[in-house]
Every structure is written in structure tokens, then in C-alpha cells.
Computed example of a mutant assay.
Amino acid sequence: MTFRRIGRVALPLVVRGVALLAGRGRPMPDVGPVPAGTVVDLPGRGKTHVVDLPGPRPDAPVILLLHGIATTGSLTWFSVMAELARDYRVITYDQRWHGRGIPSETFLLDDCADDGAAVLDALGIDRAVVVGYSMGGATAQVLWHRHPERVAGLVLCSTAARWQGHLGERAFYAVLSGVNKLFLSGVPDRVRLHAEDLPELPLDSPHLGAWALAELRSTSPWVLPHVLSELGRFDATPWIGEVAVPTGMVITARDHAIPTARQRQLAELLPNGYVREAPGGHASLVFDRERWKPVFLEVVGAVARAAAQAAA
């Protein structure tokens, strides 16, 4: 993975956001007010920012949305949350080291997955269809692996079963791991101090661009090398084929952050996965929403229906 690709993985929304602030690029989608959230205490773990939309009825299926690297739950999913809430109870939260997530001493996908189960516990939810985008797709896979009883279905978007493959990528992650150990040992403290300077709740602004920029800034840039190093160690290929719940995948056909070929490899590993492709790139869920959204809603609907039938 080249440093140019790192930028595409870590900051797809940052680049677009800067362009928008400068008056260039495609406009942010007009989706109305961003849903408000609250701070939820996860006993023994810490506090995180959670958005919980009730859905159309008390027994609506639950969708748990997991966000991408260097963003937050709301920033990744704001463009589709209200629409999902027409049919489902919709929950998203800030993963640790991101936004108002838990500032821990280490960043591990295992801990992120356990946090997801703890969020369900805190909200009194037994099972959910877990939906992950990019880094969130890795967390979703680990969440199923560590807590299969909490996952009613699995939807993976613009992600892969492993984040390194060819020799150049293996060399890059080896160097990155060494840099983290030698020069970046103080990052957990920097992440914690950055989080302490944030207001308890996100900016309440009628201007979507101002809110998005504040959400981008809520994650410390020091997060990136450590999180990328952890993602470089992630490899679900030995066990992802054992998933025993309904699965689906949304592949982005022009993705330069998570190579499309690697996304298709994951799709082939999913047993009886409901797989569809959207024509755009990695940030399609925001900046190519008109083409991406119907594909995404189709896959979520198929998995949610199959999960309901399996439960019955």
C-alpha cells in the first residue's frame, strides 16, 4: 500500500470536505438535519457517542452501523440513517480512538468488536444486523467472530477480509509497525488529550459543511498510523467462510482505497452472500449517494429479511 493510497483509505471525506469548503467539488447530499446522539457509558470500558433512531415500531429489526477510519459514526452514515430508520431501529457510535469514542491505551479490532457488543448491551438489544463500511467492515467481521450470538446478519461495504496482500503492502506495514514502536509511543496520550478538548456532544449546526468539518476534526490525526498498522494485521480469511448468518456485500467498482478485486475476493468467501456492486469509488456512500444508496438499501433489505426468517 502506497502513501497515496493511505490518504485514500484514511481521508476520503477529508479531501472532499476541504474541496467543498473552498467552493469546489460535488455538493454534500441534501439529507436534512443530522440525527442527534447522546453519550453512553459502557461499563468497564468507557464512554462513547451513540446515535439511536427508534424506527417505525418497537419490534423493528435493529441495524448497527460501524464507521470507517478517521471518521465518526454520524459522519460516515449521516446520508442514509434517516432513510434506514423508516424500516429499522438504527444505531451507530464512535469507535474507540475516533471522535468521541473510547481513548484507550491501545487500538485493537478485538476491543472495537467488544465495544460493539457492549453498545448492544447498554441499549438492551440482543441481536442486530451489523453493517460495516471500510474499517467498520473489518470490525464487523471480528464482531461476528467474537460474538456470533449477537449478530443476526452481516453486511459489508467497501471492505476486505485482509488489508495487505502483495509484497509491497507487506513491506509497508512492517515499516509502519516499526515506526509506531520507535517514534509514536505517546500517541495514546495524544488521542486522549484531543478527546478531552472536545465538547461532550457534536456541533449542532444547521450548516452541514460546518458540522462535517467539526466531525472530521474530532478524530486526532495521530490515530492514523496506529489504526492502519492494526488493520494491516487483520486477516479474516481463515474463518470468514464459517459465517452462519445471512450475509451481504456492497462492492464499490472503482475503489482505489480498498481494491475492488480484494472486495470481490471477500464476497467469494461469504457463504451464500447477497452481493451487489455500486459503480463509484470508496466515498460513494456520501459523494455518489444517488447510485450507491439503492444498491446499499437492497442488500440491507435482503439480509434483514433473511435474518428475520431465520429467527422465525
Rank of each mutant, 00 (worst) to 15 (best):
E149K: 10
L53T: 08
R217C: 12
R86P: 01
H194P: 06
A152T: 07
P35I: 10
V51K: 00
G37S: 03
L201H: 11
R89A: 01
R264M: 06
G301I: 02
G137H: 04
A85T: 03
V15N: 09
V299Q: 05
E169A: 13
G73I: 00
R89D: 01
G37Q: 01
K293Y: 10
H207S: 10
G137W: 00
I258E: 04
A118C: 06
S185W: 13
A257W: 06
R254Y: 06
L224V: 15
P61N: 05
W211N: 00
G241Q: 05
L269Y: 02
L120T: 04
P29S: 11
P246H: 02
W163Y: 15
L167D: 13
G273N: 03
T247R: 01
L42K: 00
D288N: 14
S220I: 12
G209V: 08
A253M: 07
R45D: 00
L108H: 09
A10Y: 08
P148K: 10
S158P: 09
A257T: 08
M81K: 05
Q309W: 12
C157A: 13
V34L: 13
E268I: 04
V155T: 05
K181I: 12
Q95H: 14
E277M: 04
A304H: 01
R146T: 05
W144N: 00
P221R: 14
S229W: 05
S79I: 04
